[in-house]
Computed example of a mutant assay.
Amino acid sequence: MMPLITDFKAYLSQAGYGQSSQSMLPAMLADFLSYHNLSEINQTTPHHISQYHQHLQERPNKHQEGGLSESYIHHHVFALKVFFNWLEESGQLAHNPISALKFTQPGKKSREPLSPEAVQQLFAAAKNLKERAVLHLFYSCGLRRSEGHALNTKDIHFKQQLLYVRSGKGAKRRAVPMPAQVAADLENYYRQQRIYQVARNDESAFMLNKLGNRMHGQGYQKILKELIVRAGLPEAITLHHLRHSITTHLLENGMTVELLRQFLGHSFLETTQIYAKVSKQQILKL
């Protein structure tokens, strides 16, 4: 089954899925195949998938007490949907075993945007250039977690004050304009800290962890968590809260929804309108 998993990973890359998805979805598929020990993929039935779904609901969490979260189980189901849809569309499978199955959607967590004052508290809590740069990437530039992971040094043009997202969600590219202070802070991090770090595996990466490897989403979140604790803010805040927050703040300061759509890399205006939490006064202006 390994060649099939490799081909699936190649498909995800060609289809424009983010780096985290290219890693996570094949791993989840491998877990499914290992659980059932299937010798041929066309042997898969809806019962196999339902049985595996039940197994996930009963499986203990390896990292903390309790079971797997609804969101994590949903990601496993999503991995199987993408995989079997790909097989069906590419003619490798005559019947899609997951197409007729229905699964309960996980409850959506509310992501209320931070207030401008809370954002200021985070920046005030930053002790070094790296921490400040992390806040700028996810708040000032509104990057997704996967986009921060994929960011390379060549993607940031300090003098032109532009940051390029080469492979956003859905393989879309975009240019993010940076205010002068944001460009200056990112350049200061790069010239005063980043270039003196030894890049062990990927010299192109803009942000490196302590070991000199490309910074992953989990590493970014760890830095944010440290800032949150110092700032005395709720620990449930994530990188995505920062992206939501800059969306709302820009809209409240007069940016049009169309420009916000381009800034965020959304395909449709409806997505941007749902994404931003705005005041009643702002809604009346749309």
Rank of each mutant, 00 (worst) to 15 (best):
P60S: 14
Q121D: 10
L87Y: 02
N96M: 10
K127P: 00
L137V: 04
L68D: 03
S99P: 00
Q160Y: 12
L80E: 06
C141K: 01
K81M: 14
L80Y: 07
F138I: 01
K109F: 10
K130A: 07
L151V: 05
R111I: 08
K159I: 06
F138G: 01
L163R: 08
H157E: 13
S90R: 11
E88K: 15
Q161D: 04
V82M: 12
R111S: 04
F84L: 06
Q120A: 15
H55A: 15
L114N: 02
P97E: 12
L93K: 02
I156M: 13
E88M: 11
Q57A: 13
F78L: 14
T153R: 14
P113Y: 09
L135H: 07
A150D: 11
L129G: 04
R144G: 01
A150L: 03
S146W: 07
V82H: 10
G91Q: 05
N96V: 04
E88G: 06
L87C: 07
G148S: 07
R111C: 07
L143V: 01
A133P: 00
L114A: 04
S69I: 05
H157D: 12
N152L: 03
Q105E: 11
Y139V: 01
N85K: 12
S115F: 04
H95G: 05
L101N: 00
F138Q: 00
K81T: 08
L163E: 04
E147I: 03
A94T: 05
S140A: 15
L122T: 09
N152Y: 03
Q160K: 13
K109N: 09
G67M: 11
R132G: 01
E89L: 15
Q161T: 04
S71N: 12
K81V: 06
H75T: 05
L129P: 01
E147L: 10
W86Q: 07
P116S: 12
Y139T: 00
V77R: 12
P97Q: 12
E112S: 10
A125D: 02
V82S: 10
R145D: 04
H95P: 00
D155M: 06
I156W: 11
P113I: 13
F103I: 08
K127S: 08
S115A: 15
L135N: 02
Q105V: 07
P113T: 12
E131L: 08
E65P: 00
I73H: 09
P106K: 10
S99I: 14
A94N: 09
A133H: 09
A150F: 07
K127V: 00
S69D: 05
H76P: 05
G148W: 08
G67N: 10
Q161H: 13
A118E: 14
K81R: 15
N128Q: 11
A126G: 06
A125S: 05
L143K: 01
